[in-house]
Amino acid sequence: MTVLRSVALFAVAAVAEIGGCWLIWQSVRESRPWWLAGLGIVVLGGYGFLAALQPSSDFGRVLAAYGGVFVAGSLLWAMAFDGFRPTRADLLGATICLAGVAVIMYGPRR
C-alpha cells in the first residue's frame, strides 16, 4: 500500500509542478492573462506540500525521484496540451528516468 500511495503522490505532484509551471509560461511567454501566473504560483506551492507527503523521510532521495517523474510527465503534458510529438530519444530518456525513480525510491538500501 505504501508504494501505491507513493506512486499516486508522484502523479498528483507531477501534475501540480508541471501544470503550475505551464500556467506561468502561458502568462509570461504566450501573453495570456496575468492571473494565470498567479494561479501557477499557487499550484506550485501545492506541489511543495504534496512532495512533503511522501512516505520516505529522505528529502534528497524523494526530490531526485521527482526529477525523473518530472521528465516523463513533462513529455506527457507537452503531448496533451502543446501538440508535442516525442522522438525515440525523448521516449528512451524518459524511460531511463522512470527506471531511475524505481531504483531510487524502491530499490535496495544499504
Rank of each mutant, 00 (worst) to 15 (best):
F10T: 06
Q54H: 14
L63W: 10
A102F: 15
L44T: 02
A78E: 10
R110H: 14
V42N: 01
I96W: 10
R5T: 13
W22G: 02
S74N: 14
V15N: 01
T87N: 05
G45S: 10
L36I: 06
P33S: 12
A80R: 13
G20P: 04
A51G: 01
V7N: 03
V69M: 11
A37V: 08
E30F: 11
G48E: 01
R85Q: 12
M105W: 09
G107L: 10
I24F: 02
C97R: 02
S74M: 13
L23R: 06
Q26G: 14
G67L: 03
T95H: 05
L91A: 09
R85W: 09
A13M: 01
F70Q: 03
L39I: 12
D82C: 06
V101D: 10
V101C: 11
R110V: 09
C97I: 02
V42Q: 01
G93Q: 07
G100S: 09
A94R: 02
L44Q: 02
F70V: 01
S57E: 13
A89G: 07
W22H: 13
P108F: 12
A65P: 07
W35C: 08
T87M: 08
W22S: 12
A52N: 08
L39V: 14
G38E: 07
R32P: 03
S57M: 10
R32T: 05
A65K: 11
G68F: 04
A14R: 05
A8H: 03
Q54G: 07
L53Y: 01
G19A: 04
C97G: 04
A89S: 12
A11H: 01
V103D: 09
M79S: 02
P33Y: 11
A16V: 00
V15F: 09
G67N: 06
L91F: 05
A72N: 03
F81T: 08
G100L: 11
F70P: 00
M105N: 09
A102K: 04
P86G: 08
A80M: 15
V12H: 01
L4K: 07
L50T: 01
Q26C: 13
C97N: 07
F49A: 06
L9R: 04
P55L: 02
